[in-house]
Amino acid sequence: MGDATPQGSTRRVRTRPVGSGRGARTGRPGEARRRRGPDRSGWTLLLLAAPGLVWFAVFAYGPMAGLVVAFKDFNIRQGIFGSPWNGLQNFTYFLESGDAWTIVRNTLFLNVLFMAASLGTGLVLALMLNEIRAQRFKRFAQSSVFFPYFVSPIVISIILQVVLAGVGGRSGALNGMLGVFDLPRVSWYTTPGPWPWILTVVKMWQLGGYMSIIFLAAITSIPEEVYEAGMIDGASRARMARSITTPLLAPTAAILIVLSVGRIFFGDFATIYAIVGDNGTLFPTTDVIDTYVFRSLRTVGDFGTTAAIGLFQSVVGFVFVTAAVFVQRRLSKEGSIL
């Protein structure tokens, strides 16, 4: 405790921009600080940050350096940096393979579907949950709709098998229901057509409740006077939901949309791969960039080409994300990350 003498501590209080930074950013205390580099407590802070920084260096920035593989004819013996260069061959190989267009189209199409479905469901659900006054029921309903968010992709895939396939591929709950109405049974896992919509329903199930909770939080911050004014004007509950709540939720919705547009180039790998797996019949409508990359890494083992696809995805994705962040900053003055 040698440094904890009254003298020492008061000195630190003076030289440190105590608190001036928080809350009010304006107080960049030029008057208090002379030295540029970190002082003693600066080093302590760096020490605290060190484990996290090491992780970022190795697992976030390391792979970025490893992207040189995309320009190499990689072989394990010579390693990442020792393998010979082969220019853009990996990229041309991918673009000429004919899969490129399919997987890019699927990624964009599925993401737009998922976004519309989960946001729409969340919004409607939030508006309706807000109408419910029986508190016990409301709490139970909220818990129920939020639960699917915590169900793992693998478990979702089992649920889908129970619903769509059963044992032979032509039974299951949905086929059972079709049977009741005398409709022909469908072998869903060999019919690629309806799969974008099946996956969309899965997304609604998975994210509808999650989105509704974000919207409900935003509804909470709407000032009461607005509703009082609406009531005095004789608006019905439905009218208030449509003409007051919904417009006031627009900023929240805008941010959520911008964020998912930013991610539009990244497929939902976990869910799609867990459900579709290596079932080639369904690839024409369900194969996205992420699943394609994963499969070619595992089955083909062609690191160079696979890394090239990954790099292509990262770069295009980066453009989208950066644009999204830019727009989002404009939308929310606070400049927060959602």
Partner: peptide, 15 residues
């Protein structure tokens, strides 16, 4: 930055 740009699967696998 890692929220904006990632190295992707292959470099991570090799790492």
């Amino acid at each position: 930055i890692p929220m904006l740009f990632t190295g992707g699967l292959v470099p991570l696998y090799l790492l």
